[in-house]
């Protein structure tokens, strides 16, 4: 029952803050990875190269689905902004359901940009169904398809190092984010910029995806402060011998 109450409170907070954020201008701290992403988007349109967005292999039927959904929100806005480029963005994933949603999201991005006729279904790809199979299928995309920026957002494991290495060899910049701790450390070392922890879920807010995205960041901040206070309260209570 406690979980249900927490969910209801968070949902109410999210809705209230969304309405509030619609009226107030958003204020976000600068994250270097998003600054680089902006410049990579502009560069790909100007010099006729393409973005490669890899959404990982997080199945929507598992708890890893959260990062996949955040990646889809990011893909939607990247597709909208770069669809008019000579070379359209290409997206890869390692899960069949995610692959279907990838194609659908790409198409929605094109429709929103008023360029539906430019959409090519094969730009949304299933490159493999096991983690290493996915990496092996994604490496040639990064290396051979005139990619200028490799954006890895979603659920990855250690195999992310192979994809980032393929990008490095092709002089392609890598911006990475994952919900997996191993992949986060690998992407920190292998990429030009990495999004750490919950920054993965902030992409929508930074790409201007609507008031609900900055609102969900504020909800996360509120919940984080509540957790911090509970942790400190618990520690002090333990010290004082109350619990």
């Amino acid at each position: 029952m406690t979980e249900l109450i927490i969910l209801a409170v968070v949902a109410a907070l999210l809705l209230t803050l969304t309405l509030w954020k619609r009226k107030s201008p958003k204020q976000l701290r600068a994250i270097p990875a998003f600054t680089r992403l902006y410049s990579a988007m502009g560069l790909s349109v100007e010099d006729g190269t393409r973005l490669h967005i890899s959404l990982g292999h997080g199945s929507l039927l598992t708890p890893r689905g959260g990062s996949a959904l955040a990646a889809l929100a990011m893909l939607r806005h990247l597709a909208e902004r770069t669809s008019s480029s000579d070379r359209p963005p290409v997206a890869s994933s390692g899960d069949p359901v995610l692959s279907l949603l990838t194609q659908d999201t790409l198409k929605e991005g094109y429709i929103a940009a008023g360029a539906e006729e430019l959409f090519v279904p094969t730009t949304g790809r299933l490159t493999g169904m096991s983690p290493f199979g996915f990496a092996a299928g994604t490496m040639p995309v990064v290396r051979d398809e005139n990619v200028s920026a490799n954006i890895m957002v979603g659920s990855f494991g250690p195999e992310s190092a192979l994809i980032a290495d393929a990008a490095e060899r092709g002089n392609v910049i890598t911006i990475g984010a994952s919900d997996d701790l191993t992949a986060q450390s690998i992407l920190f070392a292998a990429g030009q910029d990495a999004l750490i922890g919950e920054e993965l879920y902030a992409s929508g807010a930074y790409l201007g995806a609507g008031a609900v995205h900055p609102a969900s960041l504020t909800v996360q901040d509120i919940l984080r402060w509540v957790i911090i206070l509970v942790l400190f309260g618990g520690a002090f209570a333990k010290l004082a011998g109350v619990i």
């Binding site: 959904l69 999201t105 919900d179 922890g197 919950e198 879920y201 609900v212 995205h213 996360q220």
Partner: peptide
Amino acid sequence: ILIGVALGTLTTGLRVLLATDRPYG
């Protein structure tokens, strides 16, 4: 980091449930 990821997953899930994010067409 995992607490941050869990909070991010929670709000992302709620956004989809409230239909403010629609990864399905």
